[in-house]
Every structure is written in structure tokens, then in C-alpha cells.
Design a protein around this nucleic acid. Structure first.
Lengths: 113, 113
DNA sequence: TATAGTGCTACTATTTTAGTAGCGCAAGGA
DNA sequence: TCCTTGCGCTACTAAAATAGTAGCACTATA
């Protein structure tokens, strides 16, 4: 796989942290726009590049491709026959956010109070 | 509080989604650089603006302030006498990521395989 | 041979973030 | 009273990320 020098990687300094601590690499990676959303959209089933682009409301292909590169290098996503899919590792991460949907509804409700 | 028109808010269209679904607003909000990191750095104790800036490895004050505005509007963060602190809502969200530190270590280990 | 769908790359325009300087305020000494 | 210190921030320019659009190369199917 072509290496993307911008992919936050544990063990290497990332934007905003020279320690190389995995958590910093992870937060940096997930803090890129669309990264969380992509994991979210892949939660149920694999999607092709274009289907994923559509699911992400027309995100530009250059950004999508760049993000997918990073997520692939991080081993959260892989390209299968059925399209882009979460790896077991990616599923674990996604599960950390699994209850987020319902929680977001609760959050929205509490903002309306 | 001064309204920041850019703060992703449930019920309103956000970047990349016109549905107003809370999960989309949440992902949009957390997808801004430093948002996740700020919640992370506040996990244990309140921090002053400058302490928080330092904890985030010198993030520029304009960005920090902008992000804090959004997090305050989202009611994840509030400004107390002791400095910026997570609200109960913010703590709940932070807890969703609570096991992330250890998980990130595991992730890093699996990348080294 | 055309048609449609795929995964992208290339390019410019716009927005976001980084980086630095410094203001106005409050508290605490000398 | 006049310094100094630390606070929350604003203002500004430079750099980087993202948006938006066009279209290429490839494959499969008709």
C-alpha cells in the first residue's frame, strides 16, 4: 500500500504531540473531517467508493480517497470485493461509538430543554 | 452566550447533512480538529484556558477559543471558577471514549505485528 | 461497439487551522 | 500608587486542509 506521510501513526510524532502515544495518533486521525463519519457509514455493510461518497453527502473524492488511505493504513478499513469494509479492528472502534446514535438523540433532547 | 453560527447543532442542517439528525451534528462537531482532544484533556480535572492550550501542545488560541465556544454551546463544556470543565453531559460523552486509551495501545500493538 | 459503472487523479477556489503579537482586566506585592 | 504576573481572549497573516468540478483509465455488460 502506498504510504501516506500524513497518516497519524502510533510511535511517530503527530500534529500536536511529540510523544508518539497511540491515543494522540488516534485522536489526530479521528479528528480529520469525515473520518468518524466514514466509520459510521460503514457500520452495517461495505460500500463502494461512490456509494460511500454518496452516503457522506457528496464529500469530494480527493478528500474521501485521502481519508480512506489513512484508515486503510490504520487497518480500520480494507478494500474488499464488496467495496470498502470495516476490518475487525475497525469494527471494534466503531463499537466504541455504537451507542452514540441513541446518545446523540438524548443530547439533542437535553439541548431543547 | 454569543452564538457561533458554525457550531453544529441537532435539528439544523450541518456540513454534509441536511437531515438535522443529532448523530450528524455530533460527528460534525467532533470531527473538528482538537474537539476530541479537548474533551480528552479535560477528562480528569478542569483546566484554565492557558493550561488547556498547553495541554493541547500549543494549539493556537483562536482555534481553541472557537472550539470551546462550540463545546459550550453543545453543553459539553462549561467555564467554572476552576477553569474549563466537562459538564455532566460532557462527562458522559467522554466516558464513551473512556476505554479508548487502552484500546489505542492495543491498536498500536496490532499495527506492529 | 457503445454504455454504464467503477476507483480514482488533477486542478482551482474556499475555508480552516497554525503561528505570533498583544490588549484589557484582575490580583498581589513593593 | 505603580509594577509585575497571569488570565481570557482578539487580531492579523501564512500555511494547510477541504470543497467542488472535470474527466481519465479500467471493467463488465449489452
Amino acid at each position: 500500500m502506498a504510504k501516506n506521510p500524513k497518516t497519524p501513526t502510533p510511535g511517530k510524532p503527530v500534529r500536536g504531540s511529540t510523544t508518539g502515544k497511540p491515543i494522540m495518533a488516534l485522536l489526530d486521525l479521528l479528528g480529520n473531517r469525515w473520518a468518524l463519519r466514514i466509520l459510521w457509514e460503514l457500520r452495517d455493510a461495505p460500500l463502494t467508493f461512490r456509494a460511500l461518497q454518496e452516503a457522506c453527502d457528496g464529500v469530494s473524492p480527493s478528500v474521501l480517497n485521502s481519508r480512506l488511505k489513512s484508515l486503510k493504513e490504520a487497518r480500520f478499513v480494507e478494500n474488499t470485493d464488496a467495496g470498502y469494509a470495516l476490518t475487525p479492528l475497525g469494527m471494534e472502534l466503531q463499537e466504541k461509538f455504537g451507542s452514540l446514535y441513541q446518545w446523540a438523540e438524548k443530547w439533542a433532547a437535553s439541548l431543547r430543554e
